[in-house]
């Protein structure tokens, strides 16, 4: 049996960086390959000088201790797994476990996200295994294998806001309440959104890495179903629903809204270096929006870890304003 796959989309042209090194690999010239936006009044020398200043500041926010991400990832997964026997056999309050499971499912994406950008340890580093395992365990509660998560997130970075190539473009919606609705709608079995959209992109890519990511996804989804069905038919359906099924849905919706829709809306036409993400004020604040208020910094310098993004933004703000970035919200 063969399956026809449309592989006409060329993903080889990467307009934006995906990791720390790529962010600095772009030559310090006013090369047309990198849209440098900003005011037309800025001459080439000013723009090149601004980019040098920007990089000098950004470099200060790279590196530093990253142990808290693996610690949070492994501690979180251990706590979440412990909730299963604790609620099933030892009377631990299910309502408490449910709330914490929602937090862990959602927050797991943040720790995994650092691993996606190899910010915990790069390829060839002694602690590379820690980077990979931090990524792998973090997204188990949302049933999103790390191999797929990393590939699709980097595709989002490379082609941010490109309607054909940005893997997260299906999250776009005209307003916040439609965006929340779409987080649920995109997960429907017959809709080409969310993980269904990712599966299609991976099939189109057809590389060995994409094939592995697809297989990892099938395995994790089958494991998820096997656990839910087994728990349900042995008398623990409510525990299964409140520890894994519902936290996964709540977590995915929260992640899609705050990590994809809010920092990029409106997406249309915003594919430039300085307009691909927003600086915005979240009603839920910095922590509850998972650091997304300053998401533009992350797209400019993916090597700056999440906990330093806000400070990096305030340091970079004068340069960004000269570039024409709307920094009025923060």
């Amino acid at each position: 049996m063969s399956d026809p796959v449309d592989r006409t989309i060329d993903r080889s042209n990467r307009a934006h960086p995906g990791d720390a090194q790529e962010a600095f690999d772009i030559p310090v010239t006013d090369a047309p390959a990198i849209p440098l936006n900003g005011s037309d009044e800025l001459d080439q020398h000013t723009r090149v000088d601004l980019l040098k200043q920007e990089r000098g500041i950004a470099k200060q926010y790279h590196g530093g201790p990253m142990w808290m991400y693996p610690a949070a990832a492994f501690g979180g997964i251990a706590l979440w797994v412990s909730f299963f026997p604790l609620t099933m056999f030892f009377g631990f309050p299910l309502a408490v476990a449910f709330v914490i499971s929602c937090v862990l499912a959602t927050g797991g994406y943040v720790t995994s996200h650092e691993a996606m950008h190899s910010n915990i340890a790069r390829k060839g580093d002694k602690l590379r295994w820690l980077n990979e395992w931090t990524g792998k365990v973090s997204t188990i509660p949302i049933v999103f294998p790390f191999s797929m998560a990393r590939m699709m997130h980097l595709e989002h970075h490379y082609h941010v806001n490109d309607p054909d190539k940005d893997s997260d473009y299906t999250d776009e919606a005209p307003n916040w309440w439609m965006a929340i609705y779409k987080t649920w709608y995109n997960r429907q079995p017959g809709v080409d959104g969310s993980i269904h959209h990712y599966k299609r992109i991976l099939a189109e890519m057809g590389t060995p890495e994409a094939d592995k990511a697809l297989k990892d996804t099938l395995k994790l989804q089958l494991l998820f179903m096997a656990v839910l069905f087994t728990m349900a038919w042995t008398g623990f359906a409510i525990e299964a629903a409140l520890l894994w099924w519902l936290p996964r849905h709540i977590g995915l919706s929260y992640i899609r809204f705050y990590l994809s829709w809010a920092p990029h809306h409106p997406r249309e036409g915003k594919t430039g270096r300085y307009d691909c993400a927003n600086i915005f004020k979240s009603r839920l604040g910095h922590v509850m929006s998972m650091g997304m208020q300053t998401h533009l910094i992350h797209h400019l310098y993916p090597g700056i870890p999440n906990h330093k993004t806000k400070d990096a933004y305030f340091a970079l703000k004068p340069v960004l304003e000269k570039r024409g970035v709307d920094c009025s919200a923060l």
Binding site: M225, A232, W233, G235, I238
Partner: peptide, 9 residues
């Protein structure tokens, strides 16, 4: 596999 026993429980 899931909704049926969940409903019953």
């Amino acid at each position: 596999g899931f909704i049926a026993p969940l409903t019953a429980q």
